[in-house]
């Protein structure tokens, strides 16, 4: 289906983004590694394969739009944008520092390529709906992609927006749900269970696909199916591992919003080298 060359290229990009995430957050001394690492393959597939973009013209009118609704995964978005050429790579080392173009959570006014300011959870899907409607009104044919967290869907507004996406038949909208199973206070199913997630989105009128969120072939297949689905939006529920790729961070809610020490950065980078 997909060439080994493409898949290998995406895998190496994913490794690069993981290294950047760890290094950025380590240098910043704060940030959210767990949920950045769990979404790496999704965002890599989008920025290095799926999205129609022009890094030299971030405001290109007919570009595809990506909204990081789980805004705390900003380091991942910044690493993708930097490595895609939206701004110089050196900028990523300024993450969270005074005067940096990289705010703690995404800000569309500060950073080239960031489509929407996010961070207050639950708002990205409604914004994506608006962008998808604008695309249809403009007949510009752009597509809109949005990434939500599994804790984030506890926000009531997500379901207001979910209803509207299918009501307005936004088939130019594809959502990902990073289902890593953990939120700040612990397992999502213990804090406030959103299960059964697939049934909920189906009941709201969405085309729902459930995939392994770390497998590029599954992600690319799902994106293709989403593009081919007419008359309804597609939700791709991506089963993932929080902290994916770093042994001591995997499946550990403590790494939701904590920076690794210099020693831990070294260990993490060494682990990533071995992949």
């Amino acid at each position: 289906m997909y060439s080994e060359e493409l898949l290998n290229d995406l895998r190496s990009k994913a490794r690069l983004l993981r290294k950047d995430i760890i290094t950025m957050i380590g240098k910043a001394g704060s940030g959210h590694p767990g949920g950045s690492l769990s979404s790496v393959e999704i965002v890599t597939a989008l920025y290095f394969h799926e999205l129609k973009l022009d890094p030299t013209d971030p405001a290109w009118e007919v570009r595809d739009r990506f909204i990081l609704s789980k805004g705390h995964a900003a380091p991942l978005l910044y690493a993708a944008l930097a490595n895609r050429g939206f701004f110089p790579r050196e900028e990523i080392w300024g993450l969270r520092k005074l005067g940096s173009i990289l705010q703690g959570h995404p800000d569309r006014k500060s950073t080239p390529g960031v489509e929407m300011s996010t961070g207050s959870l639950g708002q990205g899907l409604a914004v994506s709906n608006g962008m998808a409607i604008a695309g249809k009104l403009s007949a510009a044919n752009w597509r809109v992609y949005v990434l939500l967290g599994d804790g984030e869907v506890q926000e009531g507004m997500v379901w207001e927006a979910a209803m509207a996406s299918s009501h307005y038949k936004l088939d130019n909208l594809t959502a990902f749900l990073d289902y890593n199973g953990l939120q700040i206070d612990g397992p999502v199913d213990e804090v406030m269970s959103p299960s059964p997630l697939a049934d909920k989105w189906k009941a709201f009128g969405w085309n729902v696909l459930t995939i392994d969120g770390h497998d590029f072939e599954s992600i690319l297949d799902a994106l293709q199916k989403a593009r081919e689905t007419k008359g309804k939006p597609t939700m791709i529920i991506a089963k993932t591992v929080k902290g994916k790729g770093i042994s001591f961070m995997e499946n550990n809610a403590d790494w939701h919003g904590r920076a690794p020490s210099a020693e831990q950065v070294k260990q993490a980078l060494a682990e990533l080298e071995q992949v």
Binding site: A126, S128, M131, I133, E160
Partner: peptide, 28 residues
């Protein structure tokens, strides 16, 4: 009617969707 969108009883979605429309070049 093509440029009018009833969001139902969902004001948060109303304002969020308006933000997306503005980001997409419309004047909501």
């Amino acid at each position: 009617p093509q440029r009018f969108f009833d969001m139902g009883v969902a004001e948060q979605n109303l304002l969020g969707t308006a933000a997306g429309l503005a980001a997409g070049g419309k004047i909501p």
